[in-house]
Nucleic acid binder design. Structure first.
Length: 286
DNA sequence: GTAGGGATGGTCT
DNA sequence: GACCATCCCTACA
């Protein structure tokens, strides 16, 4: 795993002092397949904090962080940028889903695809096509486009600048609420199937919809203002360098000619939650 | 771990 | 009626 990917693999770590992001995992949380040692930047952050500071109770602990995090919600200005730029800017940001009972599920975005609309033949809005289904792609940047695929699955996009342009969210690194995510995913799988590893909870566009309980009715909601789903920046994440982001061809659009091979999929190099690794693209991006 | 094949039903033409 | 921005399971290395 690369240094950059390690910086992002902080899921479920218990921290002692305020300002941190990850919460303590549940006792039955399956950590197999995840990084075990804190990356160097995290060790540095921990070392800077007062080691003798009193640790608050679990309730105060949680409340403190939730208020702290809310300040990092991304507003409409963030979404108002060209599609490819937004697809890259999403990497490392945290998608949050607040459930009806107040439970918050969090996942860091590690893989996206840009669908440019217009000339992009692989886009649902290719040639300026407008239908009832893809209306959200033409709405203001930050609008969520949720659509059903293969009859039984959902995918989530976010509209960007540009007529009919949107970014598909492909994979997340689970950060908070893994037990509930696992339950939500298990509900769609065969009874008795093996337990999913953390890195398998959200490593696909439909998997993340299931794990974060994003229903079809979230279509056309505004990610910048909705009370149940939003995006946060991570103030502790190291800035991404060009080499940290792999540009590869998009997935599942083989029948769209030259547009099938354009490097419009972006993911964090070496991150275990990426759905499909493209080794050739990684060599070319090095 | 990876490759291959089947399932699935909404959307569009 | 064909297509599809996917997922799961099984078999095999």
């Amino acid at each position: 795993m690369t240094k950059a990917a390690k910086c992002f693999c902080m899921a479920g770590r218990k921290r002692k002092t305020p300002g941190a992001v990850a919460l303590q995992p549940a006792a039955n949380d399956d950590r197999r397949g995840d990084v075990q040692d804190p990356p160097a930047p995290l060790k540095s952050i921990l070392a800077q904090n007062d080691p003798d500071a009193e640790v608050p109770s679990e309730i105060e602990f949680s409340y403190y962080f939730k208020n702290d995090r809310r300040e990092h919600r991304l507003g409409e200005d963030f979404f108002d940028q060209p599609c490819i730029g937004l697809a890259k800017a999403f990497l490392g940001k945290v998608l949050v889903r607040r459930c009806a009972d107040g439970t918050e599920l969090r996942g860091r975005i590690v893989e996206t695809e840009a669908y440019l609309g217009g000339e992009d033949k692989a886009s649902h809005s290719a040639g300026g096509k407008r239908t009832e289904r893809n209306t959200a792609m033409y709405m203001k940047p930050g609008t969520i486009y949720v659509y059903p695929i293969y009859g039984v699955y959902l995918c989530t996009n976010v509209s960007s600048q540009g007529e009919g342009a949107a970014v598909l969210l492909r994979s997340l690194e689970p950060l908070e609420g893994q037990p509930l995510m696992r339950q939500l995913r298990a509900a769609r799988r065969r009874e008795g199937a093996r337990q999913l590893k953390d890195k398998e909870l959200c490593n696909g566009p439909s998997k993340l919809c299931q794990a974060l309980n994003i229903p079809r009715c979230f279509d056309r909601r505004d990610l910048a203002s909705d009370p149940e789903v939003w995006l946060e920046g991570d103030p502790e994440a190291s800035p991404l360098e060009p080499r940290d982001v792999v540009s590869a061809s998009r997935i599942g659009i083989d029948s769209h000619g030259e547009w099938a091979s354009k490097p419009l999929r972006f993911y964090l190099r070496g991150h275990p939650c990426v759905s499909v690794v493209n080794k050739e693209a990684e060599r070319q991006t090095e």
